[in-house]
Amino acid sequence: MTDFKWEEILIYFFITLLGTFANYFYRISKGLSFSILSLTSHLFISSFGGTLTLLICTYFQVDHGLIGAACGISRWSGSKMIEELENRMIEKIKNGQPKQ
Rank of each mutant, 00 (worst) to 15 (best):
S41A: 12
L54E: 00
K5D: 12
C57W: 00
Q61A: 10
Y59F: 15
F25D: 01
M1K: 09
F44W: 13
S41N: 07
N95I: 02
N23E: 00
L10A: 09
F25I: 07
L52D: 02
L55E: 03
I11N: 10
S29D: 02
F34R: 03
E86V: 08
S33V: 12
I90R: 07
H42N: 14
A69S: 04
G50D: 01
C57L: 04
T40Q: 08
A22T: 06
A22V: 10
Y59N: 14
T53A: 06
R75T: 15
R88A: 02
T20Q: 07
T53L: 07
E8D: 10
I15W: 02
I67P: 01
H42D: 09
Y12R: 10
I90S: 12
E86A: 10
G78V: 04
E7S: 14
L43R: 01
L18I: 09
S38M: 07
C57I: 02
T16P: 02
K94G: 09
M81Y: 13
L55F: 07
G68Q: 08
L39A: 02
H64V: 13
A70P: 05
R75M: 15
F48G: 06
S29C: 06
I9C: 03
Q61M: 09
L17H: 00
G72S: 04
K94C: 11
I82T: 06
G19Q: 01
S79W: 13
I36G: 09
R88I: 03
R88M: 04
I28N: 02
I73R: 02
I73A: 12
L85F: 14
I67Y: 02
L17V: 09
I82S: 05
G49T: 15
K92T: 14
I56A: 10
I45T: 08
D3H: 14
Q61N: 13
E83M: 13
Q61K: 13
S77T: 13
I73M: 11
Q97Y: 14
I15P: 03
K99S: 12
F44I: 12
G49V: 15
M1V: 08
